[in-house]
Design a protein around this nucleic acid. Structure first.
Lengths: 203, 203
DNA sequence: TCCGTTTTTGAATGATTGCTCAAATTCAAC
DNA sequence: GTTGAATTTGAGCAATCATTCAAAAACGGA
């Protein structure tokens, strides 16, 4: 067995996430990818197949990180709804960090970028977003059973509402706007979601 | 004075709005623009300068339409907050129409697409979004004075919240999702905003 | 040290990008 | 008709796009 792989696959994918997150799928050229990952075309194509393949793997890394972040917030919170609010605050800290490649979500950026002549990518991001919706719906169904939600609240509708809140928060945060305004917005979103929770939101 | 302009500028801009709205700025190639507007490169560049110039004019047409739509909703409503809710419902009807080029907002699509090496475009969309924020803030300041808002609600924060709601609504609607779910989401957003209004939301 | 396999390199591919401009066309004025 | 200015045309520009592949380099095993 000769020659060990010089380039760490994980390190390369981290760089890819950063570049795609900052510039989007179409906005990141292979030349820029070569620079960011410090790899030559031959190695890139041998390792990831093509630009699509690299993007898919980078997207998987990105969504995995986001899931972990939400999971951690839920673990350290006494109730599900408080876990959601804790996650929103944690997310706000993350995206307003000075070294964040972008504040908007990479999945949403791709959703808004991709057209009907890229059906594979389109289906991929739709699948990811549907998975998040399903996960949230399960969470809120448990929250409902535990009396955390007002009577009559549908868990799946609340799931889509919360997903739209995250999309809106992160898209607005992509504006040229100061960090305090983003944090205020997060608190206002939590307040607004209080219309669906049994007990008034704490903050 | 010879030769009258064959191509109707307004008609061309309408086609440009449709194409850019569907495919985004970078996703619409000049070849596709030539087809959609039925114009040859020479006419295009003579009329609009370059791709940037065409996009700027198309964006102005788009934002003008959106402003009109909100203005109409506010006119036909007895209070400001009801006008906002009427607008949200009207917007939902518009974007779920089968011939809509996209459900997501063209300005937000551009905001998430544009990078730091396109500072003019970046500034342009930020300016437009700031204008909407300012307009909403004035509206909500009036609403506050007329007792439509709960005590302590800041008009500018509410303006950014509502803008983020619209961004979230339209971004989620861009998912492969049925019309009824979008309409339900709109109602849930209105319910959520009820946390800031003096009288409970009607629907 | 040499071998054999794998990885890396980077020049080159054809297609597409936004854009230019000389030539052809069109129409009002006469 | 003829003229003359404005508009339209479309071939063609250099640059960039994603991608390929033969050659060079790198390294474990002998």
């Amino acid at each position: 067995m000769p020659r060990i792989a010089k380039y760490d696959r994980e390190k390369a994918l981290e760089d890819a996430v950063r570049l795609f997150w900052e510039r989007g799928y179409g906005g990141a050229s292979m030349k820029q990818i070569e620079q960011a990952l410090d790899m030559r075309p031959g190695s890139l194509y041998a390792t990831f197949g093509n630009k699509d393949g690299l993007f898919r793997e980078a997207l998987a890394v990105y969504t995995g990180r986001m899931s972990n972040s939400m999971g951690r917030a839920l673990e350290e919170s006494p109730t599900i709804m408080e876990g959601i609010f804790t996650y929103l605050r944690s997310l706000t800290e993350q995206i307003t960090a000075p070294d964040s490649p972008a504040r908007a979500c990479l999945v949403v950026k791709t959703l808004l970028e991709v057209t009907s002549d890229q059906p594979e990518l389109r289906d991929l991001v739709n699948r990811r977003l549907r998975e998040v919706e399903d996960y949230l719906a399960e969470l809120f169904e448990r929250a409902r059973e535990q009396g955390e939600l007002k009577p009559g609240v549908e868990s799946r509708r609340l799931a889509r509402l919360v997903q739209s809140q995250i999309m809106g928060l992160r898209s607005l945060a992509q504006r040229d706007i100061d960090t305090d305004s983003v944090k205020n917005l997060t608190e206002d979103i939590i307040t607004a979601l209080g219309a669906f929770t049994q007990h008034p939101t704490t903050h």
